[in-house]
């Protein structure tokens, strides 16, 4: 075996079984034929190029996430990543839509609805303008993920870059820490969207679109309406304040989803791991809420939420891993996936 062949074989160890057994010999042969055609001595001193390494890494990632021919466990991993990408992106897109609607109202752009009276001139700061662009990208991303359009991947990358830039514009200010922690939360579904191949959301899984949208949309509305109806003369309580924003309702929804999947023996490994992954993503954002301590008891509410969410993550994660290990280790019989 030439040194070059040895290096290619080492690189191909990135591929998961059974794809490695199926393709590695053939791939090495093709690599060697391509690289030593004009220069046979290249086999002695040559090495896989960075492009080759990236290419194999991409193939390995696809196979680890359940590409055709992957193992049943890899299919479960891929579906979990897809679940995180879809539900997370829909939640962020819904929040983005609300943000865009509010901005349009404040700037007097909603026909028939007067803009609110503000004490001074309304300025559109660069980070706010960038935030609106990101909101539009998030909405487009959610639509593309639902429809299985291949443009989802570049949109996710663009949204992620926009978020990083918007966060960097806030560095140094009083909201630096929560902004960075929120970025971590937002980055998780966007990175998941970058990883999953384009595939339309199945009809039976439309709850993955409807539930996160409703939770994001209705949560703050219900909380605010409840506060306004019950205690109009008082400051909002810590609980209502926490639930009056998407992060609070996302935590409530995830803890409830965790309880639901744990109470159903028929719940799949994907459901359990999906709740755990979304919970891990949400932990930083929730922790960032600890920096807002203006209302009495607010920190205690956030700490309670953190404990509940961390517990949900641990239990659903452990249960999900156990379910994955119980799956057969071989390749999926569903070769058409």
């Amino acid at each position: 075996m030439s040194p070059l062949e040895e290096r290619y074989r080492r690189l191909l160890r990135l591929l998961p079984e059974p794809a490695r057994s199926r393709w590695a010999d053939d791939m090495v042969g093709t690599y060697l034929a391509a690289t030593t055609r004009d220069d046979p001595e290249y086999a002695e001193f040559g090495s896989p190029t960075p492009a080759d390494r990236l290419d194999v890494l991409r193939l390995a990632l696809r196979l680890h996430l359940g590409a055709p021919g992957a193992t049943i466990r890899a299919v479960a991993a891929g579906r979990t990543v897809r679940l995180v990408a879809l539900t997370g992106s829909v939640a962020l897109a819904t929040q983005g839509l609300v943000g865009l609607a509010m901005a349009a109202w404040v700037h007097g752009l909603v026909p028939g609805v007067p803009a609110p009276q503000l004490p001074g001139p309304l300025l559109l700061r660069p980070e706010a303008a960038l935030g609106h662009v990101v909101d539009v990208l998030l909405v487009a991303l959610a639509v593309c993920l639902v429809r299985g359009a291949s443009t989802a991947r570049p949109l996710a990358v663009a949204a992620l870059l926009g978020l990083v830039l918007a966060t960097s514009l806030r560095l140094g200010g009083p909201t630096t820490l929560p902004a960075v922690l929120s970025l971590v939360t937002w980055a998780v579904p966007l990175l998941a969207a970058v990883l999953v191949p384009a595939e339309p959301a199945p009809r039976r899984a439309r709850w993955q679109v409807v539930v996160p949208a409703l939770v994001t949309l209705l949560g703050p509305v219900v909380a605010t309406a409840g506060w306004a109806a019950s205690r109009p003369e008082r400051e909002p309580g810590a609980w209502l304040l926490a639930l009056g924003q998407p992060v609070g309702w996302w935590v409530v929804a995830l803890v409830a989803a965790g309880a639901a999947v744990l109470s159903r023996p028929s719940a799949t490994a994907v459901g359990r791991l999906g709740v755990a992954a979304l919970g891990v993503a949400l932990l930083p954002s929730l922790a960032g809420q600890l920096t807002y301590g203006g209302v009495a008891g607010y920190r205690a509410v956030v700490v309670t939420g953190l404990v509940l969410l961390a517990g949900t993550v641990l239990v659903t994660g452990a249960s999900g891993v156990r379910h994955v290990r119980a799956l057969p280790a071989g390749a999926t019989g569903d070769r058409s996936r």
Partner: peptide, 11 residues
């Protein structure tokens, strides 16, 4: 690229 080819062949 070889990795791309075998991804396509596999599918």
């Amino acid at each position: 690229r070889v990795g791309t080819l075998y991804g396509v062949l596999d599918r």
